[in-house]
């Protein structure tokens, strides 16, 4: 069953596993960057001002109900084949969890802390950037990592419209009734998801203040 995966022939060339893996990773990372650039400022702004929270919740729920397959196909029909439809579909998928995590994270910052930030003379921009966002980071990462898992798994369907990524193995395998190839594709996607999550877990450890870890874990005393 693992024969397909470990056949050296499948590990080289422009349609080999390394290339597909990098394509898949590329879709994932660029999607996450675009989605974060849209969702974090939106969630942070609404969380900071406290106004329009219902818009965030409503928008998140509506986007969550959108079937990614349909979005992908629609954009292909409108704009033609290529990577663009893939990014549209995946970004729409990634925005809700990141936006909801950011919004919830900012709202969850202790109001006393925010009051103190203003009290010592921070301007609103500093209150948001130096106090609210750093304190919201654990929840922002929660949403972001959830989005990352979904994007890695769902980027697979990009191959349905002829784009690259590990989904190629699944759809090509399906067309050829090559079960080994399909299974290899699925295993590789799951593996990539775990690796991506580990990577972000590491990034989270590096960028979230140790002061925000649950009491008793880490830190010197």
């Amino acid at each position: 069953m693992g024969g397909w995966l470990f056949d050296p022939a499948h590990w080289s060339g422009t349609t080999g596993i390394p290339v597909r893996l990098l394509e898949h990773l590329g879709y994932t990372l660029l999607t996450l960057v675009i989605a974060a650039l849209i969702a974090i400022p939106l969630g942070a702004f609404v969380g900071h001002t406290g106004k329009g929270g219902f818009v965030i919740v409503g928008l998140s729920n509506a986007l969550r109900a959108l079937p990614t397959t349909a979005v992908l196909i629609l954009v292909v029909l409108w704009a033609g084949l290529g990577d663009f439809p893939v990014y549209v579909a995946l970004v729409l998928l990634a925005i809700p969890p990141i936006m909801a995590g950011t919004y919830a994270g900012i709202r969850a910052v202790d109001p006393v802390t925010v009051d103190a930030a203003r009290g010592v003379g921070m301007r609103e921009s500093s209150v948001l950037l130096q106090v609210e966002i750093p304190n919201a980071l654990p929840l922002i990462y929660g949403g972001f990592r959830g989005a990352a898992l979904q994007v890695v798994a769902t980027a697979t369907i990009a191959a349905y419209t002829g784009a690259g990524g590990l989904g190629r193995f699944v759809f090509d395998g399906l067309a050829l009734q090559d079960f080994g190839q399909m299974l290899a594709g699925a295993v590789l996607v799951a593996l990539l998801a775990v690796l991506v999550d580990l990577g972000f877990a590491g990034l989270q450890r590096l960028t979230v203040s140790p002061g925000l870890r649950p009491v008793g874990s880490g830190g010197k005393s």
Binding site: T154, G167, M182, L183, A186, A190
Partner: peptide, 17 residues
């Protein structure tokens, strides 16, 4: 958690096998 990382399309094609 691991179950979640398996793409749905893959799970759907693997299930019959």
């Amino acid at each position: 958690n691991v179950l979640f990382t398996i793409p749905s399309i893959a799970l759907i094609v693997i299930t019959p096998v």
